[in-house]
Design a protein around this nucleic acid. Structure first.
Lengths: 177, 177
DNA sequence: ATCAGCATGTAAGGCGTTACATGATTCA
DNA sequence: TGAATCATGTAACGCCTTACATGCTGAT
């Protein structure tokens, strides 16, 4: 079984742009990336250690006045691994929506319960959509940077699907009424 | 920490309609449910055992002529747990799309690589969309059954979002060209 | 006869989340 | 001075996937 842990690729991808600390990596992931991939400290720090052992990254102590700080830098080997992963056409795309699970079994309860579950989902989506639109606005103003085009595309994916979700919510609520 | 294992709810939900064997449960999940939730034997059988211990379900041996077969039936307690879960407004909706991850870091490789990755995704979506449309067609002809409305709604969610994906694919490929 | 599908399960391992533990710095 | 944020990590636990192990049945 080949390595499946994708957090490694997220980290390599981020480090391919700039050197970062584990803490910074977490912050980057919590930005636009979090809409399609998540990470946690308990996830990131061990990955960083493993990847250093595999010589995909190197570390540099950049502590200043008592505060411990370690920046990571991608190696040639790391870049190779990242590039190979990008060229690999296999990709696992998974959706796990508990809201849909609840809706699927909605017949067990009164219709109101399902309507309420859809409303909760709708509110969540609406909030996330706003965030995504802000990201999109910022990115659109700096598309001269080649990389921003890629970031922009992933953000528009989020916007387009969330807008489809909202339309579906309206339809679904109507059908339940 | 409360129980997080959602496969329990999938099983309870299915058993609320009819008695089923572990094998049957797997087949049901592999149907329309698999678009938003997955299950495996290594997942289902242990859950079945645990839930029997908790008296949420009971088992009945329905083996016939040498072939072992065990059907499960939901108890009153099981129905209560299922109902409570449905009424709980909290729901974790997670998307993990490796394709978007690859696209986000697409700048590392030639644009062709990203275009190819989008195409692979597109083909996958197109295939799944066809399946979903078949489910929808069947369900639409039997909406007199109350439960079918709920199944239908989850299927249309899939159709609507997959159609949005396809539109995005076209746009994205154009922007990369 | 053989192969796909029916049917039950276990075991190992991987991955991830959450909570915990610790301490410095910055800003109100 | 206290809270938020910066910063690094570990430990426990839970969940899931994959592979393995076993055997029957029905159709070709």
């Amino acid at each position: 079984m080949a390595r499946e842990r994708k957090i490694d690729m997220v980290i390599l991808g981020l480090l391919s742009h700039e050197d970062l600390t584990g803490y910074d990596i977490k912050k980057r992931i919590d930005g636009a990336i979090s809409f399609f991939w998540k990470g946690s400290f308990g996830n990131i720090y061990p990955a960083l250690k493993d990847m250093e052992d595999q010589e995909l990254i190197t570390k540099k102590d950049i502590s200043s006045s008592g505060r411990e700080k370690i920046a990571y830098h991608i190696t040639r080997r790391g870049k190779k691994v990242l590039g190979d992963w990008l060229k690999d056409e296999q990709a696992s795309n998974e959706l796990r929506y508990e809201t849909l699970l609840k809706l699927f079994f909605g017949g067990v309860q009164d219709k109101k319960v399902s309507v309420r579950n859809i409303e909760v989902f709708e509110e969540q989506v609406r909030g996330d959509l706003e965030l995504l639109k802000e990201y999109a606005k910022t990115l659109k103003n700096s598309l001269d940077d080649e990389d921003h085009l890629y970031f922009y595309l992933t953000v528009t994916f989020g916007i387009d699907s969330y807008e489809a979700y909202l339309k579906w919510c309206a339809k679904a609520k109507k059908l339940l009424a």
